[in-house]
Design a protein around this nucleic acid. Structure first.
Length: 264
DNA sequence: ATGGTGGGTAGCCCA
């Protein structure tokens, strides 16, 4: 059994104390981070190693975006895809070795897509859709048990947002984004582990805006973070949890971590 | 209907 976590950390250097607390309390074998906001040379390798996470694949850039997969077990980085073709660091793929042998972990940070849900008026929205379509074509060649996880920046189901009707024109929950993500899902048969373990319409969010005095008031959340398994892997998942309490920590990320246990 | 907050980093971009 191995456990894998994902967390959009919104600056790994600023939030290293919270990461350390999370790793001590939850001790996942593998942690996929998004929005590390640093170049590889400034990633806090030593702090992770001191907690037992001595293996890593870091795809960073200065100031923005960036992803990293850190692990207690050996891993081998084998891909960094740029599905927008614009140089942003939004993906790193690894295969686990040792106890995780045979499992591929794809860590992805889908572009947020800007504010206006129209590709004619907002370049970033078009880039988000293009990213998803290129990722769909890429997934055609997957031929090993794979977990794809990270911040997808889309809440696909009605119960993945606090107000379905009110958010239909808000980027992250528009029908066009939801359809584009559904095509990605159907093309490979990805199993949404979050909703396998917490079936809709049960409440399930992973992000609450910083722009609220009290994130609990009104519970205005969205499920933007996901862990999806390829069809042959999905039956091996044993548990899935949302660690919502981190949203109350001092200087917290606006996203909370998810953890899935897999029987290999 | 709007602006609200937060992070990186040097006058804004991004979420």
């Amino acid at each position: 059994m191995i456990s894998i976590a994902t967390w959009n950390i919104n600056s790994v250097r600023l939030r290293m104390p919270q990461v350390e607390r999370f790793l001590r309390e939850q001790a996942p074998d593998v942690l996929c981070l998004q929005e590390i906001k640093t170049i590889e040379g400034l990633f806090p390798y030593e702090a992770f190693a001191a907690l037992g996470y001595g293996h890593h694949a870091v795809h960073g850039q200065k100031g923005y975006h960036g992803v990293a997969t850190v692990s207690r077990m050996p891993l081998r980085e084998f891909s960094r895809n740029d599905w927008q073709d614009n140089g942003e660091a939004r993906h790193v793929g690894v295969e686990l070795l040792g106890a995780g042998q045979g499992l591929v972990v794809e860590n992805v940070y889908v572009p947020a897509g800007g504010d206006i849900p129209d590709r004619e008026l907002n370049t970033k929205f078009g880039q988000k859709l293009d990213f998803l379509e290129r990722m769909t074509r890429w997934a055609d060649n997957i031929d090993r048990p794979t977990l794809i996880t990270g911040d997808f920046n889309i809440a696909p189901l009605e119960s993945d947002v606090w107000n379905h009707k009110g958010l239909l024109k808000v980027v992250s929950h528009t029908p066009l984004e939801v359809e584009t993500l559904a095509r990605f899902q159907q093309a490979h048969g990805w199993v949404d582990l979050g909703r396998q373990h917490v079936p809709a319409p049960e409440r399930y969010y992973s992000w609450w805006s910083y722009r609220a005095k009290d994130w609990r008031e009104g519970d205005r959340g969205r499920r933007l973070d996901h862990m999806w398994a390829s069809p042959e892997l999905a039956p091996q998942t044993r548990s899935h949890r949302v660690i919502e309490e981190t949203r109350d920590w001092v200087q917290c990320s606006d996203h909370v971590p998810l953890i899935t246990e897999i029987d290999l």
